[in-house]
Design a protein around this nucleic acid. Structure first.
Lengths: 219, 219
DNA sequence: TGTACATCAGTGAACGCGCGTTCACTGATGTAC
DNA sequence: TGTACATCAGTGAACGCGCGTTCACTGATGTAC
């Protein structure tokens, strides 16, 4: 076979992994496409969003989008990963701050973590809708699952030294559940306007604190 | 204007509310369409499901679907409502059984409620995907919200007599959160296979029990 | 500093396809006498 | 019990539209000398 390289005229080797953009203009365009996709997800929902729509809103023609993303799902996937990375950064900072002080210290500051996470989410265009899309499309669910597992791994690492008597699997399960409930509460606040965000986060924090401290007692 | 009634030839007055089917055959067809829609939601997701697809899988031609549902979203809405009604029936039975025995009795049997709810969900074709679709489409979110509020109202009614010292709004907020977390935990079990369903539900039940009993103490 | 050249970013036009929905119609079911 | 008639359930064919995606191309940016 002569020539594994793409034909000279072919802009896109279909299905090929996209190289990261080389120029500043391109990096900005890519970010803009993601921002626009988030906003549109909120406006029209995952069942109506389209690549043509995203490109148009970003001031581009459709083929330009395909320079950055292999297909429609790749856009949504990148959008999801960008949000989760930002959330993970919050967690990392929180762990660095409170992790070394032990379980009780962490349990007492869960409210901070929830609040900071909520702030990051709120800053992202269409953030709730991104999270919901990640939940609702069979092609995307793995992203959220992987991210929540990653978060749980980090929390487990941080807690394990202080609860030596508990097998890691049990600890992991407990924290996995806590992660899910924390995110669920955060998302609920976007649609339920009959309860105050502060009160709700305080309640959740109290429940998660209970679950964490309960761990240390059951050694 | 002569004649508000539909033209003789017109099968569908567009946008008209559909009357409930008159014949047995029709009732079965309607149920079949909903079952099929649930299954397809699980297979292809809300972004790919289509009316033509639903009709074909149900052994019908596309126009037949429009005899039962005003448009595509009406199908999904009916599907969502059917599931929520079944879940609400579980709650009603549970409340009738444990409600009269007070807060502590209810708190001690939250695990039962979660388990029964999970069973109902599991029996419905594509149930998780229905719940997720209800979360992910702007046109559908209100269904889930209304249902969760309804559930919270019923719980608040059941609890209020035993916590006379607490203002109803605070009670409602606390229970609203509990409802959300209960459903979130249930849904998580469908995608997270690294933790056991029983253990997770037991954990959630313990947290919710804590939240409920905490209410009685804070009078 | 100027310029020739290579690479990168984005365009204009078009494709085949399945979508949601409607029409006028036929066949099946129920009912009054 | 039979039959004429009204209503209900489902069909066959088609519509205009926007979808996701690709092509061969032009204009913009960066780089070597």
């Amino acid at each position: 076979m002569a020539g594994q390289r793409a034909r000279p005229g072919a802009v896109n080797a279909p299905g090929a992994v996209k190289r990261p953009p080389q120029q500043d203009r391109a990096r900005q365009t890519r970010e803009r496409l993601l921002d626009v996709a988030g906003a549109l997800l909120a406006e029209v929902g995952i069942e109506r969003i389209s690549t043509n729509m995203i490109a148009a809103r970003a001031g581009l023609t459709p083929p330009a989008l395909y320079r950055y993303f292999g297909d429609k799902y790749a856009v949504l996937e990148a959008l999801g990963r960008r949000l989760m990375e930002r959330q993970n950064a919050v967690l990392a900072a929180w762990l660095a701050h409170h992790g070394p002080d032990g379980i009780a210290a962490m349990a007492d500051h869960i409210g901070d973590l929830l609040a900071q996470n909520a702030a990051v989410t709120r800053a992202e265009p269409g953030a709730v809708w991104i999270l919901r899309a990640l939940h609702a499309s069979p092609r995307l669910v793995h992203i959220r699952l992987e991210s929540h597992r990653h978060v749980t791994d980090r929390l487990t690492d941080a807690c394990a030294p202080y609860v030596a008597g508990i097998d890691r699997e049990k600890l992991w399960s407990r924290l996995r559940l806590a992660v899910e409930l924390g995110f669920a509460a955060d998302e609920m606040l976007y649609e339920e306007d009959r309860i105050s965000a502060d009160a709700a986060l305080a309640n959740v924090a109290a429940m998660l604190r209970f679950a964490m401290l309960d761990l240390t007692e059951s050694v």
